[in-house]
């Protein structure tokens, strides 16, 4: 979340700047099996976010000290392309933000994967944000989740998430770029299919009541996103779509 700016109107005539209702998500499209070399892959277009994920493994752990005797080591690398955001050209390579996101994504993926099936091995999830427009960590999680399913990895659950936040004092779901930059709070949450919370971060200001309502709204919407993952996988196996990268 950026800084709150009271001079920028985010709600006009009861609607958000992009015309959405308060609880309406941006358009989400998922396409699986888009990369040749990866074991599993997916691309996600979520509003103006464009994300590609590729999974490798299970393979030998390198560096070796990260090996875990009883389960797989999950390494998630979330990165943003240098040209991805509307702001200045950024440096390539990890920064503190991307390292923190990689870390929380790894923990969430470890929850959904049956890591005990691959003791001493590692599973590598590489997720790259090619175009960024707020909510990239959740788009990245979605791409990673779809790529894991595409790769046939054994899972305990599937999972998906959406953010809640406040814009001009109104509780809204799935913040867009303006709402993220100038709104009053941002709360990304990922739920597994049992409805439990496996990723949660929050910044900004929210009262207890607003937070309670946010959790109710986001948990309901996360189920809709899980359905989109299922449909994307079905489409691949039904041969309905040519699975290739397509960002239009």
């Amino acid at each position: 979340m950026g800084s709150h700016n009271p001079n920028i109107k985010l709600i006009v005539d009861g609607k958000r700047l992009d015309g959405r209702a308060f609880d309406q998500l941006r358009n989400i499209s998922i396409n699986v099996g888009v990369l040749e070399n990866a074991v599993g892959s997916a691309q996600v277009i979520w509003g103006d976010n464009k994300v590609v994920a590729g999974v490798y493994g299970p393979r030998d752990v390198f560096p070796k000290y990260q090996q875990k005797p009883d389960k797989a080591f999950i390494r998630t690398i979330y990165s943003m392309a240098t040209f991805a955001s509307i702001e200045e050209h950024s440096r390539s390579g990890p920064n503190k933000r991307s390292q923190e996101i990689s870390f929380v994504l790894s923990e969430a993926f470890e929850n959904v994967l049956m890591v005990e099936k691959f003791p001493g091995k590692m599973i590598d999830l590489h997720i790259t944000v090619l175009q960024a427009a707020a909510g990239t960590r959740l788009a990245a999680f979605l791409a990673g989740m779809a790529a894991l399913i595409d790769g046939g990895f054994p899972l305990n659950e599937i999972a998906a998430g959406v953010s809640a936040g406040k814009a001009d004092g109104a509780l809204v779901l799935d913040l867009d770029k303006a709402e993220d930059n100038f709104g009053q709070s941002d709360l990304p949450i990922v739920y597994n299919s049992s409805g439990e919370i496996i990723l949660l971060q929050m910044d900004g200001k929210m009262t207890r009541d607003e937070l309670t309502e946010s959790i109710e709204l986001t948990s309901a919407k996360s189920k809709d996103i899980m359905d989109l993952i299922r449909k994307a996988v079905e489409r691949k196996y039904a041969g309905e779509v040519k699975t290739e990268l397509n960002f239009r």
């Binding site: 929380v104 923990e107 470890e110 929850n111 709360l187 597994n192 049992s194 409805g195 439990e196 919370i197 496996i198 990723l199 949660l200 971060q201 929050m202 910044d203 900004g204 200001k205 929210m206 009262t207 207890r208 937070l211 309670t212 959790i215 109710e216 948990s219």
Partner: peptide
């Protein structure tokens, strides 16, 4: 801070139920 929740961070591989989170708040 005052009447607001201003930051949250979940960590670890395990999960929290919704009502657990609200109670901990």
């Amino acid at each position: 801070c005052e009447e607001n929740i201003v930051a949250m961070q979940k960590g670890g591989v395990g999960a929290f139920k919704k009502e657990e989170v609200l109670n901990l708040i």
